[in-house]
Design a protein around this nucleic acid. Sequence first.
DNA 1: TGGCGTCCGATTGTATACAAGGTAAAGTAC
DNA 2: GTACTTTACCTTGTATACAATCGGACGCCA
Lengths: 217, 217
Amino acid sequence: MRASETAYQLLRDEIIQWKLEPGTPLGEVETSLRLGVSRTPLREALSRLIAEGLVRTGPGRTAVVTSLSRGDIVELFELREALETQSARLAARRRERLVFESLRADFLAGGRGAGGAGPVSAEDRPYVLADALDLAIDEAAASVYLRGALRDLRGHLARVRRSAHSNSERLARATTEHVLIVDAILAQDEALAASATSVHLHNSLENILASLPEDTE
Amino acid sequence: MRASETAYQLLRDEIIQWKLEPGTPLGEVETSLRLGVSRTPLREALSRLIAEGLVRTGPGRTAVVTSLSRGDIVELFELREALETQSARLAARRRERLVFESLRADFLAGGRGAGGAGPVSAEDRPYVLADALDLAIDEAAASVYLRGALRDLRGHLARVRRSAHSNSERLARATTEHVLIVDAILAQDEALAASATSVHLHNSLENILASLPEDTE
DNA sequence: TGGCGTCCGATTGTATACAAGGTAAAGTAC
DNA sequence: GTACTTTACCTTGTATACAATCGGACGCCA
């Protein structure tokens, strides 16, 4: 694999998994030594991360890991609502019956049967299923531009998930909401698919904000 | 100015103004010589353009200017609808009375008074005004993530504009639609702002597709 | 004592040299 | 004649050396 790609993947994972906390400076020499690549491919990796929004250029041209305050999360969900309601609308328009019927069965079965490859811990199962739905809707969107915007969004959302955890009550309600979205897509009801997605995202955001520590980060 | 920034601006302008047609290969050595920068900053410029979607990596790791077929334009407008309806919604929620009242007056005056800095040709005036509205809505969106996605989108749309021209009838109708959007924002009617934007984009897309040459590019 | 200027250090920005990979063309064998 | 293999060139990928710019600290002068 190319060194620039390696550096990109490593840094991206470290940022998403909070091994690199917001505000961490990413000096080129230091980081390139740490990752075992030279400065040139590292700079390419940093460029991609900056374009993606996970890294920003701080004072003095230094690269630092972007922060993720409550306000950021709210704004992130404003973008998410825009993209996912549209995706859901398009998914309903171009319904792929098999995919979504399979998903619906998985949700109702509580996650058993989803992600057949490898065992999934009971704790992660709801997330795996939710990711599967996100992925199916992304695919159904079919627009390369929409998908590109969604791809970047997913990285930020993975970071949010690491900083906020759901309780079991929320997970149960989320499943209900997910099933409604899938049903709307299967019924080719664009308006309902969009509305159901919007509702789901509002509830999800509310839960996240409530579970967040008080300090504004 | 930094060489990488120079190269980025030059290439971006050339692509948007169709001086570099879709499919044009951008060999690193050739392009760096042509622009008068070395390969390293050029690669950084290409990275940014690839992230933005104006350049893609073709077979054999070569960078080529992305195509812009009818299908691409349709997909682009699917993203645009997602982003701009949401922006309009947020603009209505956070209404900035002065900005939009000023815009409304400009639209009704047919563009006189807009873009006070420098003379604007009569041909470009409608576009300048439409851009001013886009900008105001982008600003009002206030979400950095939404704005980031919109920023990339604008580059692609500028390319589309170069390949399709509006007739005077369409321009008149577009102005009516713009005024409706502004009015909805001023009335803080989120739903109407979103719907009016959606209608406007559908009409705009239809006009563009109709004015496009038959061949699928 | 406070403010300003200069110098030193470190960091990023750029250029170039070298390595590796891939593609195309040419030649040979079937 | 066609298909496959091999070779050579061209392209991109990486590393390192050098230049320039920014920040900070120290010292001097008011």
